[in-house]
Design a protein around this nucleic acid. Structure first.
Lengths: 172, 172
DNA sequence: AACTACATACAGTTTAAACTGTACAGAGAA
DNA sequence: TTCTCTGTACAGTTTAAACTGTATGTAGTT
């Protein structure tokens, strides 16, 4: 890696990092993690925790936890270079794939799990219908049930949309 | 509106609110705002700030700011009822539409604006190419340019995906 | 085995967000 | 106009998140 530095180039890099991080934050990535990821992304060679610490001006501990987050999301990978003792990390190859794989998958799973919980609630509501009638709240109970029904539909449509994104990714 | 209350029904309502709020949080809605919205959603009649305050056990001020957020997102609407002095609010009719309209639109706009900024950076990079050569950082500058190019592609694909969601909404 | 270099667990600190109560401005009613 | 009621601005407080420095366990080196 070249060790040459130019203030103007650095300015451009900072701007780029800032700009792209904003996009990643839309996906729910924490601002700090987004900056870390983008930094790795625009750096041509793998970085050590100390490199990142220096570049971002934050503690090594921050880098360690940040990297762990990114690893869990599958956005970053650990790299081995013969003779180098420190851990090396780099951003995953295909930006689009790794990102959508990570987030879309997470969303699909989340919506599914929430939908199952709603189903459970609906079942429990049905089971207790005589209780509600006795307590004279059958009308409200019924309204709640209708609401959960609409929520289920909402989940379905969201899940569909997410799956579409995922599938359109695979045809590449 | 019936004034009858039943602990068990209330339990179910709380559970439902909790569950659906989690889904809304995926979209970046703050946890408090998500709970507020869902509360409005499962309540059959419009609510005043005091109603919400009592139901959620938070201050009226919180409700006021929360409602403003939801209004800005187009998730909630103000309702007039003759003879009632207090402001009344209710969740928007079509859950799916109002939610996607709000968030997908926001995302599309955000990605577009970020992409324009990237274009600007690319232009500036090109303009200063002779400077980079003089400073012996042409290689890094070039690498940065390639990165921004990939970022642009990323933006395009994301924007496509969002537009698909939006369009599939409209055919309904 | 002893030594060195590294990543991370942990506790303490700083920073930012969420929330509350009071106080005020504006709309209606009298 | 005066009085009352309602929403919100603001300042202060509480709560949670982000971050840091030190300490420790572990793996590689001699």
């Amino acid at each position: 890696m070249k060790k040459t530095y130019d203030p103007m180039l650095e300015e451009f890099q900072t701007k780029t990092i800032h700009e792209f991080s904003k996009t990643l934050e839309i996906f729910g990535l924490a601002p700090g993690d987004a900056r870390l990821f983008t930094t790795l992304y625009i750096t041509s060679s793998p970085m050590t925790l100390d490199d990142m610490s220096e570049t971002l001006g934050k503690s090594k501990t921050s880098m360690s936890t940040g990297i762990r987050n990114l690893l869990e999301h599958g956005l970053v990978e650990r790299v081995w270079i013969k003779g180098v003792r420190k851990d090396l990390y780099q951003a995953n190859e295909n930006l689009y794939h790794s990102f959508l794989d990570s987030y879309v998958e997470k969303w699909v799973q989340a919506t599914n799990s929430h939908k199952l919980n709603l189903l459970q609630i609906q079942n429990d509501l049905k089971t207790n219908i005589q209780h509600f009638q006795k307590e004279n709240v059958a009308e409200q109970a019924n309204y709640l049930y209708e609401c959960t029904e609409e929520m289920k539909i909402f989940h379905d449509r969201i899940a569909d949309a997410f799956r579409n994104i995922r599938n359109s990714t695979e045809r590449k």
